[in-house]
Nucleic acid binder design. Sequence first.
DNA 1: CCCAGGTTTGCTCACATGAGCAATAATCCC
DNA 2: GGGATTATTGCTCATGTGAGCAAACCTGGG
Lengths: 318, 318
Amino acid sequence: MSDTDELLSIRAAELYYEENQTQDEIGVILRLTRWKVGRLLASAKANGFIRIEIVHPRARRLPIERRLRESTGLTDAIVVSSAGVSSDAELQSRTAQAAADYLTSLRPIPRTLGISWGRTLHDVSLHLKQGWAPGVNVVQINGGVSLNQRTGTAASTAVTIAHKADGSATLLPSPAIFERLETKQAMEADRTIAGVLALARNAQAYVFSAGQADANSALVDSGYLTVEQINELVAKGAVGDVVGRYIDKHGRIVDPELNERTVGIQIDQLRRAPLTIAVISGNTKHAIARAVVRNGLCTVLVTDEDTANALLQDKDTP
Amino acid sequence: MSDTDELLSIRAAELYYEENQTQDEIGVILRLTRWKVGRLLASAKANGFIRIEIVHPRARRLPIERRLRESTGLTDAIVVSSAGVSSDAELQSRTAQAAADYLTSLRPIPRTLGISWGRTLHDVSLHLKQGWAPGVNVVQINGGVSLNQRTGTAASTAVTIAHKADGSATLLPSPAIFERLETKQAMEADRTIAGVLALARNAQAYVFSAGQADANSALVDSGYLTVEQINELVAKGAVGDVVGRYIDKHGRIVDPELNERTVGIQIDQLRRAPLTIAVISGNTKHAIARAVVRNGLCTVLVTDEDTANALLQDKDTP
DNA sequence: CCCAGGTTTGCTCACATGAGCAATAATCCC
DNA sequence: GGGATTATTGCTCATGTGAGCAAACCTGGG
């Protein structure tokens, strides 16, 4: 398009979008026919000069969702808009809200829902509305009795989700990681624990988040791992953890020995399950989100616009 | 509007603006009549959830222009959009471009055009197109032979503008400020200089910028004033300078003695002129822009969105 | 219980708009 | 310079959309 037409298209867009003039009226002002005006407006749109944003905490980015589904084979992708967000915390809250919305709209309602724990899942639990899904049985899928002051976060997340569903919670009263393999095996041999794990393995749907592999991990906070141990894992290629298990970018367990001492369902369980919902948001989590999505660890991803764009980015340049 | 309607309006907006669905189609998806969808979209707009921006260097903000005209009594206001700008320099360049556009579209074409000098005016001169206004006589309205390396900027601005208009330039070969009043008076007594000043006083239109009163002023750069002198002026209430003369927020000359030693047309000349175009942009210039507009020193203001909003702001809280 | 007041809904109709197509203008290549 | 090719323009027609209005529906007070 010619240079002067580009300018005209901007003048037309100002009158159309800011002054709510009709294309005829604009035609009179700019001395053009109304068809020319229509074409100019179309070209302004096509050139990307017109940016339309939906500014609302609940706004989603449907075109990005579609592209994500197409390029990754996910069953579903929920991408929240980051328009107008100022902090990472706000973005994560929006994502949690979207996850809660998604869970609420799930049909058929899963009888048994396996969940992990962490800041994100806790956030999701808070955003769920009372009565969101009548009679769901919520099962913890990985250990999480906290070693420090954060006691009970894991349990309380499960209980809150179950309570709001007018359903029941089945807790996994176990540490996330044992120091000795024998202790872990003894624990798993216990009838109650074994029952919970069996229930977890047979859940109809899973909801989980993921942590990046760095010093801020919840597993460090909770005292299960030291910063040095994390650094070692990173050195071995770890990008983050899913249900307490560290994986590299190919979705492989980074440290089999550590993995053996970790209580909860295996990564492969997620791969086999028909409905696994990953809720991952924040600028530090692009790498782990990529690992989860690329390796089929989830069938549904709930995330933010920036993370989603990062995932789409490397589809173009493989 | 109810909470669930608000959410529906967002869902509808996503489908309408991002997925280009028709209101009928959205109605089918959300199980609503198409009229309800129309109303939801209208309410989303009314609530400000839909933000439409025109992202282009030449984009203007017509609604702000209108409000500026209405609240200040300006004949005309040109407000460039700051959507997508990263630096103050870019914003100033956009403003200069808009000023050039405005000058080009002036009808009737002024026979004599008085101009000041400075970074902004220089920028305007660069953005003008060859043949922008056939036969204009450009007159410098304030002194400006530079004392340091910036020699000739003032003259070159005038010459460039005149040259591009296929017209003539009348230069004012004089320092901006004299050290002694007598020297200035002697200068003005010179036939040539007097002639130029008379021409300047009788110009049909003026274009000028303004400087904020701080250490970055062009008058400091050029060596006419020291930082200490500026500080003194500020202490007396100066907010900036117009055609080399420092004024306070009431548009009054701050230092009459200094003013007497300054070469060029008087501030009152601008007040009396029928067409005076001020080009003022940048975050540091809000105060001087306010002084210029509030005190009738210009009939047309070319500025950026942020400065314009600052001007509108204090209209609401007088 | 019923009715007045206000609000929401469904609808008609007029206007605004985009798709598609023929007519015209511009451009290129020999 | 002239004919072929492409781009641009003006237009018809079908569809999309908002204004305005009447019917239905709450809602609270007698």
